[in-house]
Amino acid sequence: MSAYEISLLSVVGINVILAVSLNLISGFCGQISLGHGAFYGAGAYAAALTAVATHNLVLALVAGAVVGSLLGIIVGFASLRVRSDFLAVTTIGVNFLFTGFVRKQSWLGGEMGISSIPPSGLGATGNMVLILACALITIALSLYINKSWMGFTFRAVGEDEDAAATLAVNVASYKLAAFGIGTALAGLAGGLYAYFTQFITADAFDFVVSVMLLAMVVIGGIGSTWGVAVAAVVLTLLPEAIRFLNDYRLLVFGGLLVLMIRLAPGGMAGLFKQLVWRSAKP
């Protein structure tokens, strides 16, 4: 494998973790978040600082997941106060606050970011294998949650939280769980990214990333783990194949997002199901 391919697969793996974890929050539990980049970034910075201080890979990744999750639970508390359409706006705010904050902090490297992140010791191929393994574990976890009573209850909360409450569901605790788990995985992805590039700045976690991730979720099919994972792969590779797309990422992903919501709210997974259903009919 060329260095380019290894690096591309690493990015694909990280985006799969991010999109599938966002799907836990926005797809399963119906809490539309346009700030996933902030949790990703919080994890990356936490892991980077821990890596610099301890040179311990496991510790750094755990720190990334924990800090991502802590920030996620704080934002989750906000989600208890606002209706879902406002949550989208609130999370956009969180993302801008995060990047704005990081750029001003000298202990986080300010505009220059953190460039002295020690290597993981696994080499580029080892990093890639670790990232892909984490992506597979994330997919497996998502599939399991969807089968469990937690996923079942998430769907109820996502569809009608008042109705869920009358069926004995403590809506607040389920929303917090969705945020806690989803953002822990985003933080983990941030840690993996920090080791992958060994150099992070706030730009890597800005609002455009959040839009791209939500586009992956919506295009893949809200709530469908496999659909979202496939969309993450395709939408990561597409801008690589068609270079000029990269310069218009916000426009392209934002446009796709709106188009998909208007034309096929079930996403690719929904279209696929319809296709199978039609061809199964005599």
């Binding site: 949650i145 089968k147 009573w149 079942f152 209850t153 004995a168 403590n170 605790s173 389920y174 769980a177």
Partner: peptide
């Protein structure tokens, strides 16, 4: 409703 009493409990019930 016994299984959904809390998210963690629900997570470990299939």
């Amino acid at each position: 409703y016994h299984r959904t009493s809390g998210p963690l409990h629900a997570l470990f019930n299939v």
